[in-house]
């Protein structure tokens, strides 16, 4: 669960982001001090066709690959449309804007402040993590998937 005292922002680019742009943006963001959590949102890119006549067939997609962020491998599972951030304080926002200005050269973007991350554990979270779940992990990964969040160290 998210503590209300931490501000959150949502970066909304005008285009869906390529893995290269995502990698460049995230590396600029993790270099900004005061970023607690990062969440990538967008339409999912499954490894196999999930439904239809070709169900189960392999689904090669150039937008789904592993990127390197802050020295860690991150497997992209979505075509990135939004980047949600939880910050230590509002003072970090100018640094985030500067990172966006550097990363987005071909198209525009906007940064919105608000509450964007999950605040309460859902039934699926409860089934996956149990009653004593680490609250900072809720909403960080799809509870139905086997993947977990990537922890990037060394920036604080």
């Amino acid at each position: 669960m998210t503590d209300a005292r931490y501000p959150q922002v949502r970066i909304v680019p005008e285009r869906f982001l390529n893995p290269d742009t995502t990698e460049r943006l995230l590396n600029l963001i993790v270099a900004v001090k005061g970023v607690r959590r990062v969440l990538l949102n967008g339409p999912r890119l499954p490894a196999t066709v999930p439904y239809g006549p070709a169900r189960g067939a392999m689904n090669p997609h150039t937008m789904r690959r592993t990127i390197r962020v802050g020295g860690e491998d991150v497997d992209l599972q979505v075509h990135v449309g939004y980047v949600l951030l939880e910050l230590e304080s509002s003072d970090v926002i100018p640094g985030i804007r500067a990172a966006c200005d550097e990363a987005f050269t071909e198209f525009g973007y906007s940064v919105k402040e608000g509450r964007f991350m999950k605040t309460e554990a859902t039934l699926a979270d409860y089934a996956k993590y149990g009653p004593d779940a680490d609250k900072s992990m809720i909403g960080m990964a799809d509870p139905r998937s086997r993947s977990g969040p990537v922890i990037i160290q060394g920036c604080k």
Binding site: P13, E14, R15, F16, L17, N18, T21, P43, M63, H79, G81, E106, F107
Partner: peptide, 9 residues
């Protein structure tokens, strides 16, 4: 799915 989504880069 794609009609109402933003375009790719």
């Amino acid at each position: 799915h794609g009609h109402s989504l933003r375009l790719a880069e």
